[in-house]
């Protein structure tokens, strides 16, 4: 099995925001906030510092995106009915059928994806993500969860993810973390860190590499320290909604 992820090389990153704007262009991501005040974005750049660190004065960037976690809490929180979905490995052709809700972790490439058709738009996943990597796309009246897909749609046809292609610093390294020869794995070998804390250990697959002072500033500022309280009311409301959607689905099939 592969586990695709990304390393941000902060020694190279100059904080130019090309990645986040290219992503908006590629996926038509709206600006501003959704109705629950979440920032509408698939990836982002936040400038940190200048601030003191144990290793000296530092200023760096929190370059964020979906972490495609090992144990994604968003997937667990999805209240949509589970259905059987068959996944296949593009390399070996191997197939696996899993019972998944409207968001899942792909058993072959390790990315976390959303089925927009089955998404209830309840926002439970977005609320549960400690990295605030999800928001609700609310256009057209039917809200749907949205986030970084690691551009699997682009990589499937041989293109780089939009953010990687536009990065003038080549600071974004996307690849299979389980492939020991991949450039991304070499960064892991050099000590690229995850933004994890004692209470938030869900295996994020975005890692950061840089000088001690920059990593120190980043981890001080941008590591989530608690898992979000799940909004049970919202999940409950979403569950109430399901039968009607199911009915609509059956119309489609009839």
């Amino acid at each position: 099995m592969s586990q695709y992820g990304m390393v941000i090389d902060l020694n190279k990153c100059v904080g130019c925001h090309a990645c986040s704007v290219a992503c908006r262009a590629e996926w038509d991501v709206p600006v501003g906030l959704d109705s629950a005040n979440r920032k509408q974005r698939r990836n982002w750049v936040e400038r940190l510092g200048p601030d003191a660190t144990p290793h000296g004065l530092a200023s760096t960037y929190y370059v964020g995106l979906c972490n495609h976690c090992d144990s994604p809490v968003c997937v667990e929180s999805c209240p949509a009915d589970k259905v059987a979905v068959t996944f296949s490995d593009p390399k070996t052709g191997e197939k696996k059928t899993l019972s998944v809700a409207a968001t899942w972790k792909d058993p072959f490439n390790g990315t976390v994806q959303i089925d927009k058709e089955r998404c209830l738009g309840c926002g439970a996943c977005a609320d549960s993500c400690p990295y605030t990597a999800r928001y609700l796309f609310e256009e057209g009246g039917v809200p749907k969860a949205d986030k970084c897909t690691l551009c699997v749609e682009r990589t499937a046809v041989g293109l780089e993810p939009a953010c990687v292609q536009t990065c003038l610093a080549r600071a974004r390294i996307c690849g299979d973390l389980n492939d020991k020869k991949a450039e991304i794995s070499q960064y892991v070998g050099k000590g690229a860190v995850r933004l994890e804390s004692a209470k938030v250990k869900i295996g994020p697959n975005v890692r950061y590499y840089g000088k001690k002072k920059d990593i120190s500033l980043l981890t001080q500022n941008s590591t989530p320290t608690a898992l979000a309280e799940v909004n049970y009311r919202r999940i409950f409301m979403a569950r109430m909604l399901r039968p009607s959607l199911k009915q609509l689905g059956s119309f489609k099939l009839s």
Binding site: D28, P30, V31, G32, Q40, E139
Partner: peptide, 10 residues
């Protein structure tokens, strides 16, 4: 109708 209120939206 479109999020940014620009021309030639969806």
């Amino acid at each position: 109708l479109d999020h940014e209120g620009n021309l030639y939206g969806q």
